[in-house]
Write a protein that binds this DNA or RNA. Structure first.
Length: 275
DNA sequence: AACTCCATCAACCGCGGAAAG
DNA sequence: ACTTTCCGCGGTTGATGGAGT
């Protein structure tokens, strides 16, 4: 695990990149493509370590980078994805075309944190600051306890829905995002009433899919209980715009498969934000 | 004009996971 | 199965510039 830094070699430049170094790196990657960062500096004639080259390329030189200010829409997406993923900047960046993890991380720390605080929200928990998260385990948002991969998988299902609705959401929200420091924090308007990306996980009585094949990846993942019996963990998307605020009822009545199918149809119909 | 404080952002550091040997 | 190597990530730092005094 881990290893000594790759940049210990003498004769490697550090600090800000010069125009010439940038040009060399761009020219090399254009000619040979990305990959094997370890050997790239030597091959490209750069006195830099591979890590430094990679970072420079990914965060600054890549041609598909957007640059410029973040839009209100991007702000809201970042907040939502941060709520889902936590500080998984690369996951968030992967869902915001043209933005890098470093950029988003910096933007979060310098802008959005304050913005959320001005709204009276805790930037880490995305909960109202007044309501301290002292509640029991069941009070915790499940997605904070999910493995990043699982959360990412869940978000892969949900992000299209966000994208579909985000323009509306951002236009609706833009009026109260200006001058956040002056905004009175208490009793903020509920945002994104149409889309609530909170994921809830609940144990539900496991029912094998009725006669359906496994071609469709269900939103219900099975896991093993300690005693070895199968239990279903429902990853339902609460109130996907049609039943706002209604708790998951997968475990009680209704047909889970039909509801899952509806969610899939909804999400698949939504155009991907990445275009 | 000089100084301090603060915000911003590019770059570095060190760790963990995965792949390769 | 174990070790080594590489890549990618998140946290942190330092340089820079603008605002305020």
């Amino acid at each position: 695990m881990g290893r000594s830094p790759c940049c210990e070699q003498a004769h490697t430049n550090k600090g800000a990149w010069t125009k010439e170094e940038d040009q060399r790196l761009i020219a090399y990657i254009k000619a040979r493509g990305e990959g094997c960062w370890r050997s790239l500096p030597k091959a490209a004639g750069l006195l830099r370590c591979g890590k430094s080259c990679r970072l420079r390329w990914i965060n600054y030189l890549r041609p598909d980078l957007k640059r410029g200010n973040f839009s209100e829409e991007e702000d809201e997406l970042i907040i939502k994805f941060h709520e889902l993923f936590g500080n998984k900047w690369s996951l968030i960046a992967g869902r915001l075309p043209g933005r890098t993890d470093n950029e988003i991380k910096n933007y979060w720390n310098t802008h959005i944190k304050r913005k959320l605080l001005a709204r009276g929200m805790d930037p880490q928990t995305h909960r109202p600051l007044a309501a301290a998260p002292a509640g029991g385990p069941q009070q915790q948002h499940c997605h904070y306890q999910m493995e990043p991969q699982k959360r990412a998988a869940a978000a892969d299902h949900s992000e299209a829905a966000v994208a579909t609705n985000s323009p509306e959401a951002s236009s609706r929200s833009s009026d109260d995002d200006e001058a956040p420091a002056l905004a009175p924090p208490p009793r903020r308007r509920q945002r994104h009433l149409d889309i609530d990306l909170n994921l809830s996980i609940s144990l539900a009585a496991y029912q094998p899919p009725e006669g359906t094949g496994s071609a469709i990846e269900p939103l219900t993942a099975t896991t093993k209980r300690e005693e070895g019996t199968a239990a279903a963990v429902c990853l339902c998307l609460n109130s996907l715009g049609y039943r706002a605020g209604v708790e998951c009822a997968c475990g009680s009545g209704g047909s889970p498969s039909s509801r899952s199918q509806w969610a899939r149809d909804f999400l698949q119909a939504a155009p991907c934000y990445r275009g």
